[in-house]
Design a protein around this nucleic acid. Structure first.
Lengths: 186, 186
DNA sequence: TATTAAAGATTGACTAATCAGTCACGAATA
DNA sequence: TATTCGTGACTGATTAGTCAATCTTTAATA
């Protein structure tokens, strides 16, 4: 594991545990078993680290979704496998999901360029647009549909981690909830 | 306005603007036009202030919902007026909604006693339970239904503040989205 | 009503601790 | 040998929280 990865892992753990400013850079370096100065060689400032970590985690999630999504021409199946793989990744990477949420509701979100945010949402929006054009999905603003779906994802996710269920029961809930979501937007 | 209210208002503004630890207590006192020491007479520590502010804002929202909800025996109308009044309040109190979100995804949430959280969710859960018993709402875990509804609220809210629409267009979207939500859970 | 004293509220200068970020030097690598 | 990587002691600035002194309010007494 590279120094940079060590720092990312340590920062992720501490930020989620103690909050952004509740975490001293010296503590991150310590947790990463790296010198104080090393941290500032990879990241010019603490804010740089906070933001770079978010982008890295978000990219990781998007890559996972992209790899695990079967690109059939079936829109329902495509969206379904996107939602499912997001959940699988989220349940296996709870700290990272927590970090995404914490970051997105913090003042830091304003520091990320709008183009980066737009780029990350773009694939979902395109898919929704296609669905509307094909007459499958309700003709509503795609930003609204996307916002509702993202929220739905977090809502279901919160429920799943708050209630430790058996794998099969979990799968059943995910399946049911997705069908509810699908009925809602079509 | 009492000193305590002045401090709450100043803290709310700065926490949302600069984050929890990005905001110094001295800055809060300054913004509130109050001495440093005064802040610590009302709140033993900075953490106390952060938490007291959350509970205060959350109570304010709940009180607003409670006042503006017509307690008919019609479950759909009851839930509808709860969702609608939440949105009205949220659009009029954007900073407060932002604070609620920021707090709920921060490590501070773990410092609030579970009974307080449970108590705040209780009315909604009771309502959902009643709906299920009457065979109106789908027979799913009420915590799941509540989680999905809360998320839906935030999703819609995010869309509404991100897209400045006319009052009538806004009402139309709210109406449509609620019907979608209602169809989903029934 | 006027006076006064006790209780409570408010102040801001102060401090010990902590913080983000620097930098001169040593280690590793090519 | 030269270049890059890694180090940790160091610093100026900032922080949360304290406290002795001052101001304000309350209420009892003459």
């Amino acid at each position: 594991m590279t120094k940079k990865e060590l720092i990312f892992n340590a920062a992720l753990k501490l930020f989620v545990d103690k909050g952004f400013h509740g975490t001293a850079t010296s503590k991150i370096a310590q947790e990463a078993s790296v010198a104080n100065g090393t941290l500032f060689q990879y990241f010019k400032t603490k804010d740089d680290l906070v933001i770079a970590l978010y982008i890295s985690v978000k990219d990781e999630l998007n890559e996972y979704i992209s790899i695990n999504t079967s690109r059939k021409d079936d829109i329902k199946e495509t969206i379904k496998s996107q939602v499912f793989s997001s959940l699988v990744w989220g349940l296996d990477n709870q700290t990272k999901i927590q970090y995404i949420q914490q970051f997105q509701t913090s003042p830091y979100i304003g520091q990320i360029e709008k183009e980066i945010i737009a780029k990350q949402a773009e694939p979902h929006l395109t898919l929704l647009k296609k669905g509307i054009e094909e007459g499958i999905i309700k003709n509503l603003p795609i930003e609204l549909l996307n916002s509702l779906m993202t929220s739905q994802f977090f809502g279901l996710y919160q429920f799943l981690i708050a209630n430790k269920l058996s794998k099969s029961k979990q799968q059943e809930i995910i399946q049911t909830t997705f069908e509810m979501l699908w009925d809602m937007i079509t």
